[in-house]
Design a protein around this nucleic acid. Structure first.
Length: 947
RNA sequence: GGACCCUUAGCUCAGUUGGUUAGAGCGUUUCCUUGACAUGGAAAAGGUCACUGGUUCGAGUCCAGUAGGGUCCACCA
């Protein structure tokens, strides 16, 4: 067996084991009838993405769950893959095209451009999947998915056709969020509101019939004045009662007389109480316009440039330049009454980070399916959220859900499988036309006579493909593919690990998709993709609320349970920098995880990131904690090194073999205590996994391993290993502890644990650590009992006292500047009972305290002393004691103790306490008081001896 | 405007149904290269648990309110 080196070098170890795991197909998810499945689908990173700290956290947690599942003997499957990320990817390729060839995508044309995108995808896409391997992610790479793969596209289009047939999808001309930079519509979820410092302009409009009279409005967007079609006031506003129905002259742009109208949408309190109505450029104005049958005058081109309708002075200007110019023009004409700084909320395009424009366009909309069941799935606990509070956010969104704009004016994506009969005027298409197969064809295959049809240009929102991820990655809707993927076995997936920022984008939609599409094959998967079904023209009077009355035919609970895409959702925190800001590319405040892996090892990074990621809270990134992860790995390495240097093991190849080497008759208190702590830690980690408390699990393992095992047990071992009588048993205990600790730690730090597992020979030759089974505490206890070992819980308390004894002894030395001396003597005055605890441990205690000897005495005078749970310990200093300092030190301790005693006595003297508190608590208080009093008596005596 | 979260040691944070003298890591001070580890060991200093009330025998923990910080949702020009 190879010798363990002095320090842990991660690089080669990581490379070696990852290659070995892959060569052995160790991560393959295989159907096994005798095992429980454990399934995770990765939140697919953008194919353009590179590994960020967010990915590190997210994927480390998934890997922890998957590896733990394997150790527990479950059939684990983790499906990896990437998202085609419509806008992001198209942007990347367009930018490259612009830089390298000085061309736009339109210069190339749709087909050529898409070729370029695929080229890019094959050359540079999916780097992140390679990076995940560096992190140690144990995905089943042979199942890697991409949302633009042919089979995945088929799933996406099948879902579209099916929903269209059911009447959930319709086409409508609506106000949408338009991104002038990418020139596509966006869903509400892709718009972020930001406060923007701008100006509020007070503008006056001249009354047509009353020269010299005006009505004033306030606006932040004077450049849209050419699109004004009315001025609205509240019908109950007395200030304007006389003006209703009168006309004013548009203040800017093509001359026009526009009416003053009354509408309750106007807030009398705000601004001047009068509102300019520009239906083409504001959602609220659009609705007012609809109510009053006013035209919408669109003065902006799709790219945000003012067009001819804005008038010659503004036409051709960018919207922001136009705003300034408009203000100047108004000023020149005396129409600008005032201009003041103003901060308002403006919607920004999430992708392009530019203000969006409300814009009236034809788009495809989805009325979400299974909304009620989606609520029930979470409300009734079929799907559990961790932390639970996110379910409120989820339910609130579903309560107020709006139809989803699923079409995008992009080229990279799933092209909507709709064909229009040639010659049809798309601008005038009615709902009835849409459902008429003679006019509009909807299918996967396309029309039989393609020459007579023209396909829809738009593609689907990327999320309209990723919402199928949990089952489209397992073959759906192809029955044969589902069978070979083990769909029936692995679906529903067990746990989804994701960020709360995509709860609406992704989590909620996946739930609805699962509920809608995962019907039993025999009852459903019927005519999926069969084309226009006009049996249910429900989309006819689609309104923005999109609410379907809760109809009969809601799924029963068993069916919900069967269809849901996952049983647990764990929401990670968002990783922030030291100042608490979100990590972002533009701020440059995100460390490169690969650098961190180089510096601290993948295991160090994993351990560190998990340890700072408590459940449900955002994470303040702290590189020192990553360094702490590395240090922990080194500690683990060296403890195993110590074990290896301490002696050959008879047989380490299984837990049973190690248990067989235990010699229960030779157990001392430390042996009992460390095994007790091992079982407690095993139990605690188990509990943590049940509650998804990863950082608590790491904390428990850290404390157990570092404090209980290394700082105490390994140190007492050094004495035990000196004696041939106790050596073999001590080594067996170390092996038992280390073996179990490696198993418990493996999900968190897979590389180093695999390496040490082999170096110490804890498994059969040629097998991985994950081929072993992690036993829980009661299984270990049962096996131990079978070997004649019964753990002595009293020993645990004794060891706590011994630890306190040693600490006091060391403190005495340190206070007298003798910490480095190993030749000091200690005296102890104590009871026979306590001496019985001390005596068998004297060799270890002497070594631990760094003393030459510890002797029992009846009485000691004039030496520095400390009161321990096992008697009073004295440092033999002969005549060199500083009596005053000694007295001050003891008096201070006595004072503190007296306060505590008073508090305890007060509690016990309170009849309400003794009447109402549980007996165990009262008993604990009494015991505590007795101990405190004993200690006080002793301290008082010591102070007195000092005069 | 609505909802949710946070405020505990110098810093970053744990603290799981209310119950001994509130913990960890980092940092700080002093000491230690003893045969696993200086990526380490020992000892120590450091907290009126944001504030104010309430419930309770007992509150960091439960309730109400206040202040400060954050996130999400919401069409006030």
């Amino acid at each position: 067996m190879a010798e363990i080196t002095k320090s842990y070098e991660s690089r080669d170890v990581e490379k070696k084991w990852y290659a070995a795991w892959q060569a052995a197909h160790a991560f393959a998810g295989k159907v096994a009838a005798d095992k429980e499945p454990y399934t995770i689908v990765i939140p697919p990173p953008n194919v353009t993405g590179v590994l960020t700290m967010g990915h590190v956290l997210n994927n480390t947690l998934q890997d922890i769950l998957i590896r733990r599942a394997r150790l527990e003997g479950r059939a684990a499957l983790w499906i990896p893959g990437t998202d085609h990320a419509g806008i992001a990817t198209q942007n990347v390729v367009e930018r490259q095209l612009r830089q390298k060839e000085k061309k736009t995508r339109r210069d190339l044309g749709r087909e050529k451009f898409l070729e370029k995108v695929w080229e890019w995808r094959h050359e540079k896409g999916g780097i992140i999947l390679e990076q995940l391997r560096r992190l140690g992610a144990s995905c089943d790479w042979e199942r890697t998915q991409f949302t633009m793969d042919p089979h995945y596209s088929r799933a996406v289009l099948t879902a579209f056709v099916d929903l269209f047939r059911k009447g959930n999808i319709y086409r409508g001309k609506r106000m949408v969020n338009w991104c002038p930079a990418t020139q596509t519509a966006l869903s509400d979820e892709e718009v972020n509101m930001k406060p923007v410092n701008g100006a509020m302009y007070r503008v006056r409009y001249a009354l047509v019939d009353a020269p010299g009279q005006f009505i004033e409005v306030k606006t932040t967007r004077p450049e849209t004045i050419p699109g004004d079609v009315a001025i609205a006031v509240h019908p109950n506003d007395p200030r304007f009662a006389g003006l209703l129905g009168k006309k004013v002259r548009r203040a800017l742009g093509p001359a026009a007389e526009i009416p003053i109208i009354a509408d309750t949408a106007v807030d009398m309190e705000f601004g001047t109480g009068a509102l300019k109505i520009t239906p083409a450029h504001d959602k609220a104005d659009f609705e007012v316009g609809q109510r009053h049958r006013l035209p919408a005058i669109d003065v902006l081109d799709p790219d945000g440039t003012l067009n001819a309708l804005a008038g010659p002075e503004l036409a051709g200007m960018d919207r922001f330049a136009g705003r300034k110019k408009a203000a100047e023009l108004l000023k020149e004409r005396g129409a600008l009454v005032a201009e003041e700084p103003y901060t308002n909320n403006v919607g920004y395009s999430e992708r392009a980070d530019v203000p969006i424009e409300p814009r009236l366009t034809w788009q495809w909309w989805l009325r979400y399916p299974r909304i009620e069941e989606a609520k029930a799935a979470v409300r009734d606990g079929h799907i559990k959220f961790y932390p639970e509070r996110w379910s409120k956010v989820y339910l609130h969104w579903l309560e107020n859900i709006q139809d989803w704009c699923i079409s995008r004016q992009l080229w990279w994506g799933h092209r909507i499988p709709v064909w229009y009969r040639n010659g049809l005027d798309k601008e005038k298409l009615t709902e009835a036309d849409l459902r008429d197969p003679a006019k509009v064809h909807v299918s996967l295959e396309g029309p039989a006579d393609p020459a007579n049809w023209t396909q829809e240009d738009d593609v689907l929102d990327t999320w309209a493909s990723s919402w199928l991820w949990p089952f489209a990655t397992m073959g759906w809707p192809d029955a044969a593919a589902q069978k070979s993927a083990g769909f029936d076995y692995f679906y529903p997936t067990t746990t989804l690990v994701t960020g709360p920022d995509i709860i609406f984008f992704w989590v909620a939609r996946m739930i609805m998709a699962g509920l809608e599409f995962m019907e039993k094959p025999e009852t459903g998967n019927r005519k999926l993709g069969a084309g226009n079904g006009s049996d249910n023209p429900a989309g006819r009077d689609a309104d923005r609320s999109g609410r379907r009355s809760p109809v009969a035919g809601l799924l029963p609970p068993e069916e919900i349970q069967r269809r849901i895409p996952f049983k647990n959702v764990y929401f990670t925190g968002i990783i922030r920098d030291a100042q608490g800001r979100k990590m972002s590319k533009s701020l440059g405040n995100s460390p490169d995880p690969l650098d961190l892996i180089d510096k601290y090892g993948a295991d160090g990074l994993r351990f560190g990131i998990v340890s700072i990621a408590p459940q449900g809270q955002d994470i303040r990134f702290n590189e020192e904690r990553i360094e702490g992860g590395k240090n922990f790995c080194n500690k683990l390495w060296n403890a195993c090194r110590f074990r290896q240097m301490s002696g050959e093991a008879a047989d380490n190849s299984s837990q049973a073999a190690i248990l067989a080497r235990l010699e229960p008759k030779k157990f001392d208190a430390d042996d009992h205590a460390i095994l007790d702590r091992l079982l407690a830690t095993t139990r605690e980690v188990n509990r943590c996994f049940g509650e998804f408390e990863f950082s608590a699990a790491v904390q428990a393992l850290y404390t157990f391993f570092w404090s209980d095992f290394c700082d105490w047990y390994v140190e007492v071992s050094k004495s035990k290993l000196q004696s041939a009588d106790t050596k073999a048993n001590c080594l067996a205990i170390q092996d038992l502890v280390l073996r179990q600790t490696l198993l418990l730690l493996h999900p968190f730090i897979p590389f180093i644990t695999e390496e040490l597992w082999h170096l110490l020979g804890y498994g059969p030759e040629g097998r991985f650590i994950e081929d072993a089974r992690l036993e829980n505490a009661s299984q270990i206890a049962t096996h131990s009992t079978a070997r004649g070992l019964t753990l002595d819980r009293v020993a645990v308390a004794a060891v706590e006292k011994l630890k306190a004894f040693v600490t006091q002894a060391r403190a005495l030395k340190a206070e007298h500047n003798l910490a480095s001396r190993r030749d000091v003597r200690f005296f102890v005055t104590t009871t026979d009972a306590d001496w019985d605890i001390l005596a068998p441990n004297l060799a270890k205690l002497t070594r631990m305290a760094g003393a030459a000897e510890i002797l029992r005495r009846e009485k000691v005078d004039g030496a520095p002393a400390a009161v321990t749970p096992l008697g009073t310990i004295y440092l033999d200093l002969a005549n060199t004691v500083d009596v005053a300092a000694e007295k001050a030190r003891l008096t201070k301790e006595l004072e503190q103790l007296t306060k505590h005693i008073a508090a305890t006595e007060a509690r016990l003297g309170n009849k309400a306490f003794t009447d109402k508190a549980p007996p165990a608590v009262i008993e604990g208080a009494r015991k505590q008081l007795a101990e405190q009093q004993t200690k006080r008596t002793e301290l008082e005596r010591l102070v007195k001896t000092l005069g």
